[in-house]
Design a protein around this nucleic acid. Structure first.
Ligand SMILES: [Mn+2]
Ligand SMILES: [Mn+2]
Ligand SMILES: [Zn+2]
Ligand SMILES: [Zn+2]
Lengths: 123, 123
DNA sequence: AAAATAAATAGTAATCATTACTGTTTAGTT
DNA sequence: AACTAAACAGTAATGATTACTATTTATTTT
């Protein structure tokens, strides 16, 4: 993977966002630095960064968000402010449930919890 | 919601499938009975059936699947045969974890477990 | 039973996110 | 400095879904 300024900025944009930005958002962000950058470049680099394990994707209502946190974790989506929060689980009890009750072999999972976040919840 | 043969068949197609078909698959299925049916009709009726709670949707890799089972349950996707299985959980431990550790209010969740299903797992 | 009304339809055009293509530029190598 | 392949900008194409429109049809009203 040869160096390119555009990939560096795409990556930096995701890492600094803490949010879980879409390709669209990343494009706008990087465009400030490189006004001539094109969508194709953003998508190509996002694909490569995912492929090399620098970032990961999460799907939300059919659109793709990018996540700079590649450690295993889950997401909470506030349906008031639409922010996406990370959270971790102590024990993934449901994995063993699926394995013993359904006799499937589990290799991964994706959990998406929705509700009202603590910031929106001050009442 | 006025009766229509096309909606009846769209609904019947989902209910009889046990699989979790896409709009595309439902279209092909209903087309056998009503060759002149259009995609617009399929999508419009799917939307209405969801709206009225007769079916629900699940997103998988950005494409929408339809589910005739509206009781709360989760999904296991086999990455060998690509079948989508239903399963239920005994206690949703992670809900309380999110509520007490992150102080969010949980209203729902979506869990997607991946791996190798019991049928593909006979080795 | 005929007329009226509004919902649903078929067919097609438009949208939106994403991917593919193409000729040009550029990072890294010889 | 010359070379080469990767990456680029720009643009066209794709695929799933939604929107539009003139026509048909289920249901209500006369
Ligand atoms: Mn995350
Ligand atoms: Mn299901
Ligand atoms: Zn919130
Ligand atoms: Zn399988």
């Amino acid at each position: 993977m040869r160096y390119s300024k555009q990939r560096e900025l795409v990556h930096a944009s995701i890492m600094s966002s803490k949010d879980h930005p879409t390709a669209d958002r990343i494009f706008s962000e990087v465009k400030k630095e490189i006004p001539k950058i094109s969508f194709g470049t953003v998508y190509r680099n996002l694909g490569q960064l995912v492929e090399h394990g620098f970032i990961r994707i999460i799907q939300l209502d059919g659109i793709t968000h990018y996540d700079g946190n590649v450690d295993p974790h889950n997401h909470f989506i506030c349906n008031e402010c639409n922010r996406i929060y990370d959270f971790e689980l102590d024990n993934e009890d449901f994995i063993s449930q699926v394995e013993v009750k359904n006799h499937h072999h589990v290799s991964g999972y994706q959990l998406m919890v929705t509700g009202t976040c603590n910031k929106c919840n001050i009442n």
